[in-house]
Amino acid sequence: MANPLLEVRNLRVEFPTRKGTLVAVDDISLSIAPGEVLGVVGESGAGKSMTGAAIIGLIEPPGRVADGQILLNGRRIDNLSYDEMRKIRGKEIGAIFQDPLTSLNPLYRVSEQLVETIMTHLDLTEKQARARALDLLKEVGIPAAEERLDHYPHQFSGGMRQRVVIALALCAEPRLIIADEPTTALDVSIQAQIITLLKRLCSEHQTAIMLVTHDMGVIAETADRVAVMYAGRIAEVGPVQDVIKRARHPYTEGLMGAIPTIGGRDDLLTQIDGSMPRLTAIPNGCAFHPRCPKVHFKCHTVRPDLIGDGSHSASCWLMEQQPAQGGSQ
């Protein structure tokens, strides 16, 4: 990866509260190459959505980016003013959120919302913009697009609405899309359709996608690389095949074992005891150590950084002892 499209360096997101500062994202670094799908997976409270929000500059105050840099095409975007950032959002970075109903304004026709977004970012006449809106709806697979262009959001079903949201994100041909749980609110059959669509768009337009989700299955189907987050940090990152089949971090390993699968009929699932720590009580040392089956004394006090070979690394002290374990290289 000589020229990453997006580079996040040592990102830290804080929320000041009256009981002290909460660290939602703690020293995260990652990069996405053009046309790549990076999955960011984690359970609730892992900080995955917050990372996405930081990149598009939409962290709700009093939360703030406290440290680190975000670079898009080599240009820093984390310190831009609201207005400058607004130009980048939509034009260079598109966003898709979990609930398609809240991403669309219920009072405006789909055509109005698409045309407005297109004209904000591209130098087109209204007629051209409308033609482009129609093309977009066709592209995201909405049947009878001519007819449906002038419908209101509530006239679309859940899956179709999510397609409209994707069309809206694609308006200005952004090079990067941040998709936060794009399939979570949808039924399995619709979920499969949306995944197929995202993959197709990615390969046809060379759009990079940061896919934030809690669902390992969606990651396995869609992503090229995956970052597993835990308590605001990256626990493991690597090519999706390696991480899923040869997990290095005990958390990833536990996570994979916890997913019920059809065929593998063990009586009990592998379970990780306990739950993700609250932000108010993140343990010292490795944040996972109270739940880790392979914990040893060092984990209680010293926090491990990402250790690994080339593309696949994990922030776990086990990596230090056996650096060459597994690996696909």
Partner: peptide, 9 residues
């Protein structure tokens, strides 16, 4: 979450 789902199941 999946890890918690496994506990409950």
């Amino acid at each position: 979450d999946v890890s918690v789902q496994a506990q409950i199941l």
